[in-house]
Nucleic acid binder design. Structure first.
Lengths: 155, 155
DNA sequence: CCGATATTGTTATGATCATAACGATATCGA
DNA sequence: TCGATATCGTTATGATCATAACAATATCGG
């Protein structure tokens, strides 16, 4: 039987102001994202896809070919990061790249047939996963959460 | 003047089910956390501290000496990750480590005087930062967000 | 037209982050 | 007591993640 150890706690000490880490939004958001992310990986992990990789494929599915930079903004990733994700997806032949003829700076990213087939298979799974993550909340609460998170993210 | 490029968007195509990435909690949570985290780094970055490092110091300040493993659980980090954070904080003499006499498996982590002084200086800054992050929300909405996030994270 | 400014993609660095496998130590249960 | 099981810390691997600096290309304003 597992034992959730609570060992080694020292007696309370120090100034002990009213501060609690739990009251900081950033900490709560990080934990909630951890939960959502692990829910997703549980379900799509067998396809060897991470959450950011999934989001990248989903975006391409929604929008069609996109420049690497715009794709990164649409999945909220820095240029240096989206680059690595695209490289991995490209290595697996889930996306293909080509130069933009009219703007030599741009690299256009697009789903391959294999990538399209995969994301079409995964989307229903992720929708189910979202439902699981939201299970602790009632319908009206979910709507509220979306509204609040959206306003936080958009600043 | 910066130009937010929206180039290279291909015409809408494919099955175009009703799926939208924005409707997935995980994506919203990730973006909201990015925002909160960058708000924090903006303010405490000059102290060369990251959000997880801050959380670690704050936890130690709240609870006193903790085993590395328990500390990790209390800041929501895997054993392998909290280890690295502790090593960095230890290298900067913000925390100190010692063996637990009664359980040879445990390493007890505690704030040094310097670590205590630093976190006491930072806590007010972070409280202010939380306020900034929550600025888009009204008081009752903040309370609601906390409730909803807490229930999500705890499953 | 053409130089100042912006944007895109790349490279490098350092810090998370999750997972699996492993030895050492503790604890449980027959 | 003693073997099965659990926990703790470590190591290794691979994938984010943010930032700064850089060259190539585009765009803007005079």
């Amino acid at each position: 039987m597992p034992r959730t150890s609570t060992k080694a706690a020292a007696p309370a000490r120090r100034l002990a102001s009213d501060y609690r880490l739990e009251d900081q939004v950033g900490f709560l958001l990080r934990r909630a994202y951890q939960r959502a992310s692990s829910n997703l990986v549980e379900r799509i992990g067998s396809y060897d896809l991470t959450a950011p990789q999934y989001a990248t494929l989903a975006r391409l599915y929604e929008r069609g070919a996109l420049s690497q930079n715009l794709l990164g903004r649409l999945v909220a990733m820095e240029p240096a990061n989206i680059r690595d994700v695209v490289l991995r997806l490209k290595k697996r032949r889930l996306v293909a790249t080509r130069r933009d003829p009219t703007d030599k700076r741009l690299i256009l990213i697009d789903l391959t047939a294999a990538g399209t087939a995969l994301i079409e298979q995964l989307i229903p799974i992720e929708i189910e996963c979202t439902a699981t993550t939201l299970a602790p909340l009632k319908a009206n609460e979910r709507k509220q959460l979306y509204d609040l998170l959206g306003r936080l993210a958009d600043g």
